[in-house]
């Protein structure tokens, strides 16, 4: 995964609370292999009606060019399904700005280069109001820890570990491989001290 520090794009508000993982990607699409792409399924049932017609009042249908989303609290709550992040990333979204995120979703996001930027609720409300249903130029700066939407800037909160991961595009498996010796030593010591921790049978 490639790292990044700055992103310039178009921000769009989805002024809703608790956009959960079942809405981000309904379960029926989750057997698709990743290489086929998850973009078409992003917020599928919110974007399309029962007959597959695009709903005209859905903000993302009016502004499919958006690549930064702004939403209310508890974004990505629910399931651990990483497919929710695949849908966002494959659609082209690079950052989501919200007052709070589901913990597992946020970890999954960072593992796929998507920024979950935590911004206080009142600032999010101001952004939503300023956008008024339209998109605006926006800029995310990971180093500085700021987002600016339509000219007004705000600081976002992000775990420093995650910040470094996004910037460097670190791959955890490679990073962990450097600690192979410590892992083996830990395992052997654990097994000797707590033999019960290995399954019988």
């Amino acid at each position: 995964m490639a790292g990044w520090t700055q992103h310039e794009g178009r921000a769009l508000a989805l002024p809703m609370e608790s956009i959960d993982t079942d809405q981000l990607i309904p379960a029926r699409f989750m057997s698709v292999p990743r290489r086929d792409g998850y973009g078409p399924y992003l917020l599928h049932d919110m974007r399309f009606d029962e007959d597959g017609q695009a709903r005209p009042d859905m903000p993302l249908n009016r502004h499919p060019e958006a690549n930064i989303l702004i939403a209310r609290r508890n974004f990505g709550s629910g399931s651990s399904r990483e497919a929710a992040v695949y849908a966002l990333v494959d659609y082209g979204i690079r950052a989501v700005i919200a007052p709070s995120f589901g913990d597992i979703f946020a970890a999954n996001a960072v593992n796929n280069g998507l920024l979950p930027a935590r911004v206080p609720a009142d600032v999010v409300e101001e952004m939503i109001e300023a956008l008024g249903g339209e998109t605006a130029d926006a800029r995310v700066d990971l180093e500085a820890g700021t987002v600016s939407v339509g000219g007004s800037a705000a600081a976002f909160e992000l775990d420093p570990v995650w910040r470094m991961k996004l910037i460097n595009g670190w791959d955890d498996i490679d990073m962990t491989a450097q600690h192979a010796k410590e892992i083996t030593a830990f395992r052997d010591a654990r097994r000797a001290a707590h033999p019960w921790a290995w399954p019988r049978g």
Binding site: S80, N108, M175
Partner: peptide
């Protein structure tokens, strides 16, 4: 605790988690 697919791959490959 529950984890996402990237983390599952990490646990499969290393039996550890960050």
């Amino acid at each position: 605790f529950g984890i996402g697919a990237t983390e599952v791959a990490h646990v499969l490959a290393t039996q550890t988690i960050w």
